[in-house]
């Protein structure tokens, strides 16, 4: 287990290096003249040249890359053209918001998607099944921003139950940057409620597609389980139906669902920027999209690297969990 962890962590290094080279190269050959855009129409050619020099943009690309990597290890991820700050500072500020949104969304997706999938699998072709399938199909088919806006209209404008935009105005003492967690750690329940109210709608909007996917997968995995020998056997031993479904079938079914959960965590990041835009959520996804639009070199590279790390780490965690659930998976490979 320990060896497996070390090995997998080491394996992440070449992946991240490759990713960084690729995205670094791409960011430099992207069309568009962001320096001119930044310095304004009055800037002279000398001013632009000077600014480019200061950012090292005129060095050979290999040198630029080496300097960049050196910088990363000292916490310097280069200057952001949008904010005029170290990209690292921007990321530290925006990443927790996005990460918190993703975590809550994933939590909801599993919490609701798995039981719905179980019910619709066990009640195949009954009304429960038809209902959940319609809901999940809509969840996959409907555009995320549309769902987000509908949620806003219903819960924020019509019923005024929840705030329309923003991340909450009572900020707990910062420990992890994840506000729900921080407010619990500091026993600041006022902040917890406040932030919870703000995160509900965006996280629901973000989770729906993933929830629908988890539900469909759980359903089909449960259907597969239904006719497995060991399930018929458990029935023949006189075990309670509830136990057969939620213990003996679900653990097997969930093992295969888990892989998808790792992959959809990456997809959540992709969907996050739409949701962040609609709900004015001050997250990294929005920052990243702005970076692409303005050709903010360092921000593009920085955000992509963070996404890469999140993706790699989630899949590592999923692999570890998989091993706990299914003993047939051995770590020695």
């Amino acid at each position: 287990m320990k060896e497996f962890l070390i090995k997998r962590t080491l394996q992440m290094i070449p992946v991240l290096l490759g990713l960084s080279i690729l995205i670094f190269g791409l960011s430099r050959i992207m069309p568009g003249d962001s320096i001119r855009l930044k310095l304004g129409p009055e800037a002279t050619a000398e001013q632009i040249e000077a600014f480019e020099d200061s950012m090292g943009l005129n060095d050979p690309i290999v040198i630029q890359y080496v300097n960049y990597i050196k910088g990363v290890f000292t916490g310097d991820m280069g200057l952001s053209l949008q904010t005029d700050r170290n990209v690292a500072t921007d990321i530290v500020e925006t990443f927790p918001a996005t990460f918190e949104l993703m975590l809550v969304a994933m939590f909801l997706a599993i919490l609701i998607g798995v039981p719905l999938g179980v019910i619709s699998g066990v009640k195949k072709d009954k009304w429960q099944d038809h209902l959940t399938r319609v809901v999940s199909l809509s969840g996959i088919a409907l555009p995320k921003f549309w769902i987000a806006i509908i949620l806003q209209i219903i819960f924020a404008y019509w019923f005024s139950l929840l705030p329309v935009v923003g991340r909450g105005n009572i900020v707990p003492t910062e420990i992890t940057g994840l506000r729900l967690l921080d407010s619990l750690l500091t026993l600041n329940f006022e902040a917890f409620i406040n932030n919870l109210k703000h995160i509900i709608l965006p996280s629901i909007a973000l989770s729906i597609a993933t929830m629908a996917q988890i539900m469909r997968l759980t359903r089909s995995n449960m259907l597969d389980e239904l006719h497995k020998d060991y399930i018929v056997a458990s029935t023949s031993y006189g075990l309670p139906k509830f136990m057969i479904v939620y213990k003996y079938m679900l653990k097997n079914a969930f093992a295969s669902t888990l892989t998808i959960i790792g992959l959809s965590f990456g997809a959540l990041l992709g969907n996050a920027f739409l949701v962040e835009a609609v709900f004015g959520w001050p997250g990294m996804a929005q920052y990243g999209v702005q970076a692409v639009i303005y050709k903010d070199y360092n921000a593009i590279v920085g955000v992509t690297l963070v996404i890469g790390i999140v993706f790699a780490v989630t899949n590592l965690i999923v692999d570890i969990l998989y091993g706990f659930i299914d003993p047939r998976i051995k770590y020695d490979k």
Binding site: K228, D229, A233, T235, K251, N252, D326, P327
Partner: peptide
């Protein structure tokens, strides 16, 4: 009745036990 009065031995030992418990 199942398991108590009447119980059954399944044919294939490779598939008759739940792999994850």
């Amino acid at each position: 009745m199942r398991g108590q009065d009447i119980s059954m031995i399944f044919q294939d030992p490779m598939t008759a036990l739940n792999p994850v418990f």
